[in-house]
Structures are given as C-alpha cells and as structure tokens.
Nucleic acid binder design. Structure first.
Lengths: 230, 230
DNA sequence: TCGGCTTCCTAACGAACGTTCGATACCCTG
DNA sequence: CAGGGTATCGAACGTTCGTTAGGAAGCCGA
C-alpha cells in the first residue's frame, strides 16, 4: 500500500509543518493536520519525530542553520567594515523575505520551544547569538577604522537588527517597492546614517552604503502606505 | 456562595487573560486556566464574554486603545517636529516596556484574531494605522521645515517603528542599561541620525534629540550583551 | 415579600488533542 | 526464497478543548 519509498519524507514533513506553524501557530496546529497535508496519517509522523515539540525543534533548527550558513560567509568578504556590513544586512533583508515562513516560526514559536524543551532552545539561541556577535564585531571594526561613530556597539547592533527584522512585519509583494529596493533603503538608513553619524561626511561612508542610497528607492513618491506595524 | 459582587470582574478577566496569553500564547491557554487564575469556573467566563475569541478581542482592544490614548496626545505638544517626534518615540519605548505583556499579545496574537474574527481585527488595525499616519505626518513636517533629510517618509516611519518596537524583544530589566537610557539612545539614533542625515549638521537637530543623545547612555561600556533577537 | 437580574455553580456535550500499540505491506540483503 | 528493517496503517488510550444547559444564591427595586 505504501507505493513509493519516501524520497525525503522527513524534509517534506518539516516543510509542511513550517507552513502550517507559520500560518496558524504551533499550538493551533494538530498532528493530524500536518499528517494530512503530507498525505499520511498522524501516527506515521512518530516514525520520523518522537514528539510534536521535536518537530518544532527540527523546524527551528533547520531554519536557523540555513540562515546562519547563508549569512556568515557574507561577512567574510573583502571590503571595508561599512561595505561588509551593508552587504550582509542587505542579504539579511532579502533572506528574511524569501524565507519569511521559516523566520515567522523561528520568531513566534521560539518561546514555546523554550518552555517545552529548554535544551533544544538554548542550542538554537546560541547559534543566533553568534550571528549577532559577528555583526557587532564588524561594527566595532568600523568604529576603529573611523568609518562609524557609535557610542555603544551593542546597542547599535540591536538597533540594526531591529531595523532589518522589522521589514517582514509589513512588507507586501504587491506594495510600491520591490524587496530589493526596501533592502537598499534600509541599509542606507542603517549603515549610512545610523552608524555613520552627522560627524562623518559622505567620503567616510564609501561605496556599499552610498551605492545603496543611490539605488532605485521609491523614485516617485509611493502611492501611500505599505501596511502597518504598531 | 458568591460573596462579593464583582468589583471589576470583566477587567480582572481581561488582565488575567493578558498575562496568560502573553506567556503561553492564545491557542495554548484554555478557558479553564483563565477561569482558575481568576478564581471562578470556566462556564462563568461566558457571562462576561460570548466566546474565547471575543475575550482575545477585548484584550487586544483594551491594549490598543490604552496605547493610542496615551501616545496621540504626546504628539500634540508644542515644539519642532524633531522635538515632538523624539518625545513621542521615547514615550513609545517606555510604554511598550511598561505594558510589554499587553503588547506581546497584541503583536503575537493579532494574526489569530485576523483569521477568526476579521471584523474585530480590522477595527484594531485601523486604530494602529492612525498612529503610524500621525508619526509620518510629523516626519513630513520635519522634512518641510528642513530638520529632516528623508527620501521616503513612509519607509522612514516604518524604519523608526521597527527600531522602537524591537526593544521589547531583547530588553531585560537586569541588563546594563535602564529602559530610559535605552529609549534615549534609540531616539538619538532614530531621530538624531536616521532622519537627520549627514547633510544636516548639529544645529538643525535641536534640543530633544540632542538632549537625548547627551543623555546617560552606557557611560562605561556595558558588560557585554543584552540578549539576542536574530 | 415578591419577582427579576446578575453572577456563579455543577454537569455534561461532542470534538479534537498528543500519543501508543499491533499489524501489514514493501524493500533490501542473504 | 527466507528474514529483518522501514514506513505506514487503523484503532484506540486518556485527556483536554470550547461551549451549553439548568439550577441556586445573592441583590435590588416595587
């Protein structure tokens, strides 16, 4: 009765669960719903994951690992701190948009994982902190190089992450701007202005941010409105 | 058996539900848990709210109304656009911290409300958009007055909201800075730098942001680390 | 004192929950 | 062709879910 051996059943389950968790929330999605969307029965899920919370962990772990392994190499590129930071933050925005379902789960349901499986949560949290730490290192390098004027590198890192992470809460595909244009604009605001303060004139913030700022951002004043955070 | 007439039963239920929803999520909290925390039985809840989703709506509505009625008057104060914007954003950060449980629910569970009761969701969403619109008006006034150098006021508004809203995701009471210091720092970064670009020298960004920037922000480099977003 | 209103109760409804069990069909190795 | 492993199934477990029904206790105005 089981005609095909599973090509990537485990991965298919994770992918399906990601979509459902992102849409309805972890607690509101039943094992039977996930199984039905995959095309099997609920009991069969337990041959791939020992429990529901382990499935959530797998979803979060895969999402985190994919993000980190995509982003960290971008920080190793050559260039000034401002160029490297601008580049990685631009990729950050684009990645968060492309994988917005995974990141929605990773954000909204990490609390559930923390309560129900603290060990699994800590492991994921440590990975994310590594990324934050790497960003802060680049900022501090930029300060040392005179490119940035930052009082508190840790606060500046958190501000930048707040900036780029917020895009997913309001961006809509059919809005006035492409995600690339938004990414460019946010990098220009974050790196070109927030980090390089009024003290730094244009020459000290070179190509990356400058090019982004000159990019195709909302040429004609957009038709009002992109959605709302609060 | 019911000794006291309820002094503010309805309000007590909303408050209790807020705490539980914020901690465990709407879907993971049962009516029996809420009732037990209030000190009554689950069926008694239905004399105050017709259903669970109406209770969620009440939580979100009260939280939204309180936030808006606290913040909008702050925008009516006298002063330059930069002063008014800096002040309201500072209060925004402080309010979000003080009422972080309500805002957690308002943020995390608004999606659940949207799916299960679109009409109630729209009503709340409209209120929040009014706040965003009011912020954008002040930014545009600042551009007209030459205080701000902003390409796209809508994008700048969203960037500022992303900035201030993100504080709640990592701030911890026992961290290196007080919430007031963080609010000052974020206002300085957001208004003093992000909006007032490299073109604007110090004189065009007057007292509010400047005073905030000079505020007591992390005098001795903080002992590394405040938590992690992603 | 009476009747109604409000508030809470106990009890129960059917449905859905996460999970376990034992059996069955397929596949690969010997 | 035998045998073990893998993946799935149907059925059922005890529990919890949101919600409803009907009744009892207190209050208040008539």
């Amino acid at each position: 009765m089981t005609s095909p051996p599973p090509p990537g059943r485990r991965e298919a389950i994770i992918q399906t669960a990601t979509v459902l968790f992102a849409r309805d929330g972890y607690a509101a999605v039943g094992m039977r719903s996930i199984a039905a969307a995959v095309g099997i029965r609920a009991s069969s899920l337990y041959h791939h994951f020992p429990s529901k919370v382990d499935l959530l962990h797998a979803v979060c772990e895969v999402a985190t690992a994919a993000f980190i392994s995509a982003q960290l190499p971008e920080l190793e590129r050559p260039g000034s701190p401002a160029e490297r930071l601008g580049h990685v933050l631009r990729e950050h925005v684009l990645y968060f948009h492309e994988h917005r379902l995974e990141e929605t789960v990773g954000r909204r349901e990490l609390a559930a994982l923390q309560q129900q499986a603290p060990a699994l949560f800590d492991e994921i949290q440590a990975t994310r902190r590594g990324y934050q730490r790497a960003l802060q290192d680049v900022i501090e390098a930029g300060v040392a190089a005179g490119e940035f004027d930052v009082e508190d590198a840790n606060l500046a890192t958190l501000a930048l992450l707040g900036l780029v992470n917020s895009v997913n809460t309001w961006f809509q595909e059919d809005g006035p701007d492409s995600i690339e244009a938004v990414a460019d604009a946010f990098v220009a605001m974050g790196v070109g202005r927030l980090l390089a303060g009024p003290l730094a004139a244009s020459p000290t913030v070179p190509s990356a941010a400058a090019a982004a700022a000159a990019g195709p951002v909302s040429r004609s004043r957009p038709a009002r409105g992109r959605g709302s955070p609060a």
